[in-house]
Design a protein around this nucleic acid. Structure first.
Length: 344
DNA sequence: GGATCTGGGCAACGACAGCA
DNA sequence: TGCTGTCGTTGCCCAGATCC
């Protein structure tokens, strides 16, 4: 089986992440190993350390199903501080990456240690997008198709806890949105210190963002259905907004927490993750609506002039266009705040 | 500048140990 | 006994050094 040199292996992984919509900036170049890079998307940024080798069969004396990476050239794995650390193997044969959990590989290495994964896992990963294999002691090895690698990095901890749903869920799920995912991750996993300098300024920024959302919601009540004419669109324009009450409730909850003396950062984070995701869904609704409306430029112009859009059959949303940006901006503010108060 | 040599890195392979 | 993980050996490949 053809194998790739180190530079090509790093390139393969970075290309996969970039193809998923992440802006990748390399911090190391060529065949430097481990490679380091940053990946940024929609206000979410990760610094990543990448260890990667070719995935090869275990040998003639081994089970046919056994594949592995052989860890050479390093004396041990060093996790990226405040970032993600990937241990990958690339299989040209299966067209998937094998991913191993650095948290289980932090001890001293042998002379040429290997980490195994089965052909069945690799095959399932190629077929389904991702697959997991229980290696015991709470460790999960993964097989991840290149188009899912970006999502894998985003949900690294959950994936190696055996949860594939965030990697495999569809593009409308919260897990598919980096901003909502990162906020939710911090809300559920980080420890916070509200006494750090600068917290009050960031909190004030969030309150302003929440008030902006609430104000926009107040002025985005459904308008009377437009007259149906030969050039007016049919469909959801006359439907009631489905996400409006939930967005308003979440925004009010955040506002209430932030105005208290000791806000619950987890509650703010969870509500904030929902609002960020709601913004994403509205954005998708807008884009899908635009696709539909491409067939009639007159209709599209009229729609956009009213700054309204809708999605038939999914959410039935109908909002002013500015709400998308207000929700996403608020999401970024909440992420910034959570990161600021996270105890390292 | 091109050909050849050399050493290091790494993948391939196999032996062995531990464990269920 | 079979499976899995670790370790050592072998040989290939590549980059740098050297020579013509």
């Amino acid at each position: 089986m053809a194998r790739l040199n180190k530079g090509a292996l790093v390139e393969r992984a970075i290309d996969a992440i970039a193809a998923d919509g992440w802006a990748v900036a390399r911090l190391t170049h060529g065949a430097t190993h481990p490679a380091r890079f940053t990946m940024e998307r929609e206000g979410v940024s990760h610094t990543v350390k990448l260890y990667i080798w070719n995935l090869s069969h275990g040998g003639k004396s081994r089970s046919e199903s056994e594949f592995r990476i052989q860890v050479t050239g390093i004396s041990g794995f060093e996790p990226e501080p405040n970032g993600r650390t990937l241990i990958l193997g690339w299989s040209e044969e299966f067209g998937v990456f094998a991913g191993f959990d650095v948290q289980h590989r932090l001890g001293p290495l042998g002379a040429s240690p290997s980490i195994q994964i089965t052909a069945a896992t690799l095959q399932a990963g190629g077929a389904n997008g991702a697959a997991k294999q229980d290696k015991g002691r709470g460790e999960w090895a993964l097989a991840v198709r290149p188009d899912k690698v970006g999502r894998y990095v985003q949900h690294l901890a959950a994936a190696h806890a055996g949860e594939l749903e965030p990697i495999l869920s569809d593009e409308h799920s919260p897990a598919a949105d980096p901003l909502a995912s990162e906020i939710a991750y911090l809300a559920d996993n980080a420890e916070f210190d509200l006494t750090v300098p600068g917290e009050t300024e960031l909190r004030a920024e969030m309150i302003a963002g929440v008030e902006g959302v609430l104000a926009a919601l107040g002025s985005a009540k459904p308008e009377p259905p437009p007259q149906m004419g030969h050039n007016l669109p049919p469909g959801p324009i006359d439907e009631q907004p489905a996400l409006g009450p939930e967005i308003e409730a979440a925004a009010q909850q955040i506002k209430s927490e932030l105005e208290s003396d000791s806000p619950d950062a987890r509650a703010v984070g969870r509500a904030g993750a929902f609002l960020a995701w709601a913004g994403k869904i509205l954005q998708i609704a807008k884009q899908e609506g635009a696709k539909v409306l491409e067939k009639s430029k007159d209709v599209a112009r009229e729609y956009m002039a009213k700054a309204l859009w809708g999605t038939a059959g999914t959410l039935g949303v109908m909002f002013k266009e500015e709400i998308v940006e207000l929700l996403r901006h608020l999401g970024r503010s909440i992420l910034n705040w959570l990161q600021h108060i996270t105890i390292l």
